[in-house]
């Protein structure tokens, strides 16, 4: 009996070894192939100077009509605004996807939970936020929100815009949650949902309301395109901030844990 067991173990081990050896060969082959590909790409790209740039020249006179002076923002929100709309939707989709997969305990969002399981070892707990952290957070977060607002607004004429502002807002949110994880339980989930949807919805609404001005989808009415863009940018920034925070949290607040404390 014992002998049989050890025999089986040995066989398993030898099989494992066989696999390991094969794995090593596979890995080498993969790396070699990648090296070949990369070398070829390197040769191809370096050999050939980039083609004549027609787009940049064609674009130059159009920037005036875009309503903003920053070329990147003009392309991002006006010329290729449709791409950006879909991109905002991708972010929304990520939030949606994560919410559909996982739930978190709203009283301690840094611990995963799921309907079938219960959190075992909370890895972040203590009597409350420490003093230094709390103070820092109290000073930093309003500042970050302020800077985020500025960045978003500045996007119209220089580097900046909704994504930069939104990223900062997201950073503020993450900081807040790290410092005071319990805080999230005080926010009603419906409000979070609203915050996530706000930016994409504004973008879509603005796009649709362009029909009312006789234009195509996302064709902002010509005088004052800038203010439309600003509206979109602020909406997007808020939603990006909230969505990034929810991405960090990694799940929807579990309603059961919100309501009943006696849940095992």
């Amino acid at each position: 009996m014992n002998g049989g067991l050890t025999g089986m173990k040995k066989r398993k081990q030898s099989m494992k070894g066989k696999f390991k050896r094969k794995d090593w060969q596979f890995a080498t082959l993969t790396s070699l192939l990648i090296a070949t590909l990369v070398t070829f790409l390197c040769w191809a790209i370096l050999k050939e100077p980039p083609g004549e740039d027609l787009t940049a020249e064609a674009l130059a006179p159009l920037f005036v009509q875009s309503g903003v002076t920053s070329p990147v923002t003009a392309i991002l929100l006006n010329f290729r605004g449709y791409d950006t709309l879909l991109e905002v939707m991708v972010l929304f989709l990520a939030g949606l996807g994560i919410w559909s997969q996982a739930t978190v305990d709203p009283t301690n969002p840094l611990v995963f939970s799921s309907p079938a399981t219960h959190p075992t070892k909370p890895n972040f707990h203590g009597p409350g936020p420490e003093l230094i952290l709390a103070t820092l957070v109290r000073i930093l977060i309003p500042l970050m929100v302020l800077v985020a607002g500025y960045l978003t607004w500045a996007g119209g004429f220089q580097a900046g815009g909704a994504f930069q502002g939104g990223a900062l807002l997201g950073g503020a949110g993450i900081l807040l949650i790290l410092a005071e994880p319990q805080r999230i339980s005080t926010i009603p989930p419906a409000l979070i949902r609203f915050g996530i949807v706000l930016g994409p919805a504004i973008f879509l609404l603005v796009g649709v309301s362009c029909f009312g001005y006789g234009g195509n989808f996302l064709q902002y009415p010509q005088p004052g395109a800038g203010s439309w863009l600003l509206l979109i940018e602020f909406g997007a920034a808020i939603s990006i901030g909230i969505t990034l925070t929810t991405l960090f949290v990694g799940g929807r607040p579990d309603p059961k844990r919100l309501k009943g404390t006696d849940q095992p």
């Binding site: 794995d23 596979f26 890995a27 082959l29 993969t30 192939l33 990648i34 070949t36 590909l37 070829f40």
Partner: peptide, 18 residues
């Protein structure tokens, strides 16, 4: 079903096309 095999096939196919 293994990633490493897939990787080899993927790259081989790409290089073949080139």
């Amino acid at each position: 079903m293994r990633w490493k095999v897939i990787g080899i096939l993927y790259l081989t196919l790409c290089l073949c096309l080139i």
